Amino acid sequence: MFDPFGDFDSKGYLRNTRKDKAPVIIKHMEHNLFRANLADALTYLADQDVIEYGHFLEVHRLLFGNYYPWAGEDRQMTAPHLLVSKSDTTFCEPRSIHLAIDQGLRLAQREQRMGDVPGEIMGLFAYGHPFLDGNGRTMLLVHMELAHRAGFSIDWPATNKDDYLRALTLEIESPGRGILDRYLLPFCGPVIDRNQWADNVLAMKGLDGLDDENQVEGDLRDASVAEKYRQFDEARNYSYRHAVPGAPDAADDLDYTEEYRGKGSGPYLS
């Protein structure tokens, strides 16, 4: 059982408010909360002029805050030293989560490339994996809103779960090569009415991203774990352009002049 807090026996799975431990009950609670709070989360996203990292976090809180007290807090807050993986896929170390999500949001909104690289953007969200649980549902809603603003929709219920997850896994490992783009683009079509979104989302199978549960890959303060992550991140060979600290209005005009390429950036790695 995924237990990053180390208190599963006394507080249940991820310190949920009911102290539930049985996986079937936990998944049932998560799904019911998602159904109950879906409309509020979609309305919240629609009301934002520009979707930013904080809005990504707030969607998660709206969906799961009644069950997980830490909902809306990313792994830098909840598990700052842990490297997390799922289904043999390693996610980015906590200090790089914001960077990965921001890159996806920037491509979608500032560079207006949502219609060209929807898979690359989804892969960045998935690699960022901000939360201890509920990532797939959260990033799906954000991705749907970004697609709507770009003038198209993805027929998610028509996608094949296994094919999608296979492409998503490869996208995380080798980002920016068009792997998930090639899978998703045939399912892209005209925008659909917002009133249909909830039904479309709930018709999907495997809402929570990659199959299986999260697992702790190790403590990043351990040199061997840090080196393993560094090698994985470097092999991804993905370049992020990021705002230079102190640049005038950097947050607004995104005057990107420096570059980060996968070299294990973070507090634990040199």
Rank of each mutant, 00 (worst) to 15 (best):
D162L: 05
H148L: 12
G178T: 10
K205V: 14
N160C: 13
A158T: 11
D181F: 02
L168E: 02
N195E: 15
I179N: 00
K161M: 09
R182N: 15
K161Y: 12
A167C: 14
I172D: 11
G176C: 06
L170K: 05
P175V: 06
D162H: 03
L220Y: 07
D193G: 11
G206L: 00
Y183K: 00
I179G: 01
V201K: 02
D199L: 12
I192W: 03
P157W: 02
A203M: 11
R182F: 09
V201H: 03
R137W: 00
N214F: 15
D208M: 11
L185N: 08
M204W: 04
I192F: 10
A203I: 05
G128L: 08
W156R: 06
V191S: 14
M144C: 15
F131K: 07
W156H: 09
N160F: 04
D211V: 00
L207V: 10
L170F: 06
L185C: 07
S153N: 07
L184Y: 05
F152P: 03
G128W: 03
S153E: 02
G189L: 07
D163V: 05
M204K: 04
A198T: 14
N195K: 15
A150K: 04
R166L: 12
G189Y: 03
N160S: 13
L168T: 01
D155V: 03
T169P: 02
Q196K: 12
Y183A: 01
D219W: 07
I192L: 11
G206C: 01
R149C: 12
G151C: 10
S153H: 03
D193I: 05
L202F: 14
R137E: 01
N214S: 13
Q196V: 05
D163E: 15
P186A: 05
G206W: 00
L202W: 10
L202C: 07
L180I: 06
N160H: 11
A198F: 05
E213N: 14
D155S: 12
G134H: 05
G176H: 03
E173Y: 02
H148Q: 14
T169H: 09
A147L: 12
A167I: 01
Y183F: 13
E171Y: 02
L184G: 07
L140R: 15
G134N: 08
F131S: 07
A203R: 10
S153K: 00
R149V: 12
G134P: 08
G209F: 01
P130G: 04
R166V: 05
F187M: 06
Y164K: 00
